[in-house]
Design a binder for these strands. Sequence first.
DNA 1: AAGGACAGCAACCGCCCAACC
DNA 2: CGGTTGGGCGGTTGCTGTCCT
Length: 358
Amino acid sequence: MGRHSCCVKQKLRKGLWSPEEDEKLFNHITRFGVGCWSSVPKLAGLQRCGKSCRLRWINYLRPDLKRGMFSQQEEDLIISLHEILGNRWAQIAAQLPGRTDNEIKNFWNSCLKKKLVKQGIDPATHKPLSTDDQKEEESCSKRIITTTENSKIQIPFSTALASSLNDSGYYAGDDNSNAITEASRDIFMTSNNNKPTFLDPLSSFYADFPHQPNNYHHLAPVTAVTNYCGGGFSSMPSLTNSDQGGHVSVTDQFMNSNKESSSNNSSSNMYTSVTGFSSSSPWDASAENITNKLVEPFFQFSAIKCEDLYKTSCSSWEEDQEHTHTNTASSSIHFSTYPLTSLSEDLTAANFDVFHHI
DNA sequence: AAGGACAGCAACCGCCCAACC
DNA sequence: CGGTTGGGCGGTTGCTGTCCT
C-alpha cells in the first residue's frame, strides 16, 4: 500500500470544487500570492489539502491560463515535443504558454493519440505503424520540408530536424528523412554527464554542419542560449533550403513587433528595454553566458508573421560566412526559437524576465 | 424517452526528489 | 546522515455530457 492520501488522513473535502471554494482560493492567492501550499487551506478557510489547492490553482484558477481549443499550431508543437520528450508533460507544457500539463496530457490521450493512429503513426514512437504507412509518412514529411512559401511555412520542428538526422542523431545529409529517434533524444537528454540538465532543447541549439556531404557531425544542445530564448517553436524553414526569403534581423523583428503593439503603452515600455538589449547582437548581450558554447554570434530570423505564437530562426552556413564575426574555423548551423508573444501585445512581465535576466 | 457507450476533462493517487531539520 | 515534509509530476479514476441505438 502506498502512502495514505493527505485528504483521507485529515478528513478533508474531495471531489469537484464549488464556486465558493474557488472564490476563496482565488482571493487568497491573488491577495497573498503563492507561498506554502500546505498552509493555504487553513489561511483561505478551505477544507482541502494543500495539494488539492495547488492543483486547482495551477489547472483552473490561474489568471494566465489560456482557455478553449488547441490551435493547429499548438497541436503540431505538442506532437513535435512529445516526439522528443515523451510523456514529460510538464516540460511540454512549459513550451506552451497558458496551457497546463494536465490539459496537454488530456488532450494527448483523448485526441492526438487517436489522430496519429489514424494517420498511421505510432503515438508512442512517432514512427509509421506499417511499411505502407511508412511510405505515406515519408512522402508527407518531404512535402512539409520542401514547403517554403515566404517563410510562413508551418513545419513541426522535429520533422525538419528529423530530415537532417540519421538514426544516431547525426546529420546525415539530404537523403535521410528518418523520424527523430530515441538516440537523438538521448543526445539532448544526456548532454551533461547523463544528468537531466536538458533545459529547453527545442529553443535553441546548434549543429555542426558538415563541410562535406558525408561528413557527420554531432548535434549538441546549447543550453545557455535558452536563457535568451526561453520558448518553444512551432515552425521552421527547411534546413536545406536557402531560398527562404524575407529575412529580417533580430532588431527588425523587435521593431516590427513593437509597431504592431504600439497602441499598448506597457508594450512600448517593454520595447524600449528590449531594444536596448537587441540593438547590438543578441549573442553579444548574452556573451558571458554562451561564450564557450555558441560558436557564432550571429543568426537571422526568417519568421515573418507576428501573430504566430513562436518563430524559429535558422541561419545557414553560407549566411554565417557572410555575416558573422566568428573567430572560429568551425562552420555551424544555428536553430533558435523565441516566444513571439514576449514581443507583442501579449508581453508580460514574466516573459520579459526571460530577456531581462540575461 | 430511456439507457448504454463513449469521450472529454477535472481531480485524485502515489511516487519521486529536494530541502530542511 | 537519516528522517520528514512539501512540492512536482505522470498515471489513473470517475464524473458529466453527448451521442447512438
